[in-house]
Simulated scan of single mutants.
Amino acid sequence: MSSMTGRAPGRIRIIGGQLRNSRLDVPDLPGLRPTAERVRETLFNWLAPVISGARCLDLCAGTGALGIEALSRGAAGVQFVERDARAAQALRDNLARLKAQGGQVTTADAMAYLQGAPQPFGLVFLDPPFAQNLWQPLSQRLEQGGWLTPAACVYVESPRQAGLALPSTWMLHREGTAGEVGYALYRRAAAT
């Protein structure tokens, strides 16, 4: 993983499932911050009971490592949303090279994408660029816009001390830290 202000490494590894040990080419783009291997390993251990057959949304996909890891581990499909055209093309190239089935890449701003017609997802990866502070508006749009199934899981990655204001229906399931990064898995509960 690169620093929050540095550049991404040239390649990262898928750590589990059918594509285990496959390498993803990572474009050299400012601010691109792939999720660290040990964080992905922990996250997918948490998700083991729900990943098979899941419909996933990788919002602010970047390298697509989270979504490709989900496909590798049996997710039914992943919608990748990435606003940077170069990162989106690198993601398409990686999916094609790995012959990963079930991934669809949309080049769009995350908030603009969530203004479209909703398709409920059972698992969402929410890891926006740290400098843009998009957690609250994106999480509210996910919750209120019909983008989540009733029992959806949402993974959130942020600066360690961010103090995020997330929807009250998102119940913390598990959390951890890695260096200056905080990560957490939430489960959606019915609104009261």
Rank of each mutant, 00 (worst) to 15 (best):
W135Q: 07
A178R: 12
R160I: 12
Q140A: 13
L142H: 06
T169N: 06
P167G: 14
S168R: 09
G146I: 05
K99V: 11
Q161K: 15
A85Y: 01
L126N: 06
D109F: 09
F125G: 09
A90M: 02
E143S: 15
A165V: 13
T177D: 14
L166E: 05
A100C: 09
V181N: 00
A162T: 07
Q119F: 00
A100T: 11
H173Y: 11
P128F: 06
F121S: 05
P120F: 04
L126W: 11
P118I: 08
W147D: 06
P118R: 06
Q79I: 00
L91F: 12
G145Q: 06
D93K: 10
L164P: 02
L138I: 04
G102A: 06
F130D: 12
L142M: 10
A117C: 02
P129C: 08
Q136A: 15
N133M: 10
Y113R: 02
G103C: 10
L98I: 13
V154M: 04
L126I: 07
V124R: 02
P167T: 06
W147R: 05
S168G: 09
L172H: 09
P128C: 02
G146V: 08
F121V: 07
V81F: 10
E180N: 14
P129I: 03
V105M: 02
E180S: 12
Q79C: 10
L126M: 06
L164G: 00
T106M: 00
A112G: 03
A110M: 04
R92F: 00
K99Q: 15
C153P: 00
S168Y: 01
P128R: 04
L134V: 10
A88R: 01
N133C: 09
L91S: 12
S139T: 08
T169H: 03
L95P: 12
W170A: 04
Q115E: 13
W170N: 04
Y113T: 01
A162K: 10
F130T: 01
P128H: 13
D127E: 02
F125L: 14
A178I: 07
R92A: 11
A131W: 01
E82W: 01
F130E: 10
V154W: 03
L114P: 08
Y113L: 05
G163R: 13
R92G: 03
D93I: 10
Y155D: 03
V154A: 03
F121M: 11
A85E: 11
A90S: 15
F125C: 06
F80R: 12
V156P: 00
A131K: 12
V105C: 09
C153S: 14
L91E: 10
A88Q: 08
R97N: 11
Q104A: 14
Q101F: 05
